[in-house]
């Protein structure tokens, strides 16, 4: 796992496969935020991008809890992470 080196805010979708960051902001609706929270994706949690789906498909993520998720790219674009 490579951690994002600089400390600037980046979209989760901008991380390459094998890169990880800590979730810093969720620019989501209340419903989307509640849904992600129920899945264990919330501010302060570390997420590693395992792979990107082909042709703009979802991201395959592993959280620091060990749980893995597929997350639509359009949501991942609005999840900001820091290295």
């Amino acid at each position: 796992m490579r951690t994002v080196l600089n400390n600037e805010l980046r979209a989760l979708s901008a991380l390459g496969a094998g890169e990880s960051g800590v979730i810093a902001e969720l620019a989501l609706t209340a419903e989307e935020r509640a849904w992600l929270d129920a899945m264990g994706v919330s501010v302060g949690r570390a997420a590693e991008v395992l792979r990107h789906g082909v042709w703009g498909g979802p991201l395959h993520l592993r959280m620091d809890s060990g749980a893995e998720f597929a997350l639509a790219r359009e949501l991942a674009e609005r999840v900001k992470v820091r290295g």
């Binding site: 992600l36 979802p58 893995e68 998720f69 597929a70």
Partner: peptide, 10 residues
């Protein structure tokens, strides 16, 4: 509809 969020169990 909510965009895809799905658990990928082992």
């Amino acid at each position: 509809t909510l965009p895809l969020v799905i658990e990928m169990p082992a």
